[in-house]
Design a protein around this nucleic acid. Structure first.
Length: 272
DNA sequence: ACGGATGTTCGCGC
DNA sequence: CGCGCGAACATCCG
């Protein structure tokens, strides 16, 4: 389920769950989330360590443990970190788990196996090529409207495709792109290079607002989340609502496909 | 039963 | 090099 807000949510949860505890043991059946010998590294290196820090860059989670052990976690499409209290039944599709010294478990569930876990030296995590390749993170770095405008000016791609490029802005996926473009009043198929500086400013503000609203909707505790529990109360204004009335003007929302992803938009509020 | 889904990567062709 | 397209991955949900 992960775009930036959900990955941020996972980062905050992992801090709470792992802080101050020792990893007693690690388990992981062979699966695609590990490449090469990453699984063996995970099983060998994690036991005995303690979490020292958690960072997020875009959709990438970075966990620093003692003994300079670092874990990179990408949640793919269906990855999720879950706390399993002592004695509670584990969820299905668990691909990796850390048993803590108090008997609690923190597990990584990923039914579709699109996610990835990798082990690196903790002090090298932020310098990994895939992390360096990311554009600015809206929460960590903030988005500079003029820099975004300049970057978009170089691309003829649809603006929606451009802002989902992790090298342009880190962490924007189909939901946040759809929501932000609606808030900014920009048609998703507008050529990126056609945006004025004023429109880029509106887009930056809309991205921030959309992310903030999604974070708020997720709450702050271990409690759950509109997002998957109750579609009718999810925090999204137009995502997944093609055919229903635009919340601003009542015109039926339409959809089109861009870059292989469904894009919902209001033909009146987001004119081409 | 069928179609679509919050992501990434790779190969192919223009 | 930029860009678009389709496929692949494996499962769940309506």
């Amino acid at each position: 389920m992960p775009e930036l807000p959900e990955v941020e949510f996972a980062a905050r949860a992992l801090r709470r769950w792992l802080e101050g505890r020792r990893v007693a043991s690690a388990q992981a059946p062979p699966s695609r989330i590990f490449r090469g010998s990453e699984r063996e590294a995970f099983l060998r290196r994690l036991p005995g360590t303690r979490l020292t820090w958690v960072e997020r860059r875009g959709k990438i989670l970075l966990l620093g443990f003692t003994e300079n052990v670092g874990v990179l976690s990408h949640l793919g499409m269906t990855g999720k970190w879950i706390r399993v209290p002592k004695g509670a039944p584990p969820p299905s599709h668990v691909r990796a788990s850390l048993e803590l010294d108090d008997g609690e478990k923190v597990v990584y569930r990923d039914p579709r196996l699109f996610g990835r876990l990798a082990v690196h030296p903790a002090d090298a995590l932020l310098d990994l090529p895939e992390v360096r390749a990311l554009g600015p993170d809206p929460l960590v770095d903030g988005i500079d409207p003029e820099a975004l405008h300049a970057r978009l000016a170089r691309s003829g791609r649809p603006v929606k495709v451009a802002i989902m490029d992790q090298g342009v802005i880190a962490g924007i996926g189909n939901i946040q792109a759809t929501e932000a473009l609606f808030r900014a009043g920009l048609h998703p198929a507008r050529p990126a290079s056609s945006l004025t500086l004023a429109e880029a400013r509106r887009l930056v503000d809309a991205i921030r607002a959309s992310i903030e609203d999604t974070l708020v909707a997720q709450g702050d505790g271990d409690s759950i989340v509109y997002v998957e529990e109750d579609r009718s109360q999810d925090p999204f204004r137009i995502y997944g609502r093609a055919g229903t009335p635009c919340p601003r003007c009542g015109t039926p929302l339409e959809k089109l496909e861009l870059g292989g992803r469904t894009s919902v938009f209001c033909p009146r509020c987001q004119p081409l």
